[in-house]
Amino acid sequence: MAKLETSPNIPAADEFFAALLAAHEGLSKEESDALNARLILILANHLGDMEVLEEALKIARNPGAASG
């Protein structure tokens, strides 16, 4: 059974996306890559559930695959 939330879950979707881009503003490609890596680690730790993380990795690797 899927544990990963794959339906819309961020109420202020536009604000989040803008904040994500803003966090990268003025950074070189290298600095942005580092930020992304840190962000993934921070969020992964917050989730903490290996099943959820594995589902997320699967979808990230292959967006067309059915979730769950």
Binding site: A34, A37, R38, L41
Partner: peptide
Amino acid sequence: RIFRDAVLDLAAHHDFARPL
């Protein structure tokens, strides 16, 4: 290497990254 370095950067300030 990017992920490895991200772990090291975070670990200096945040406990959660240390087990990684």
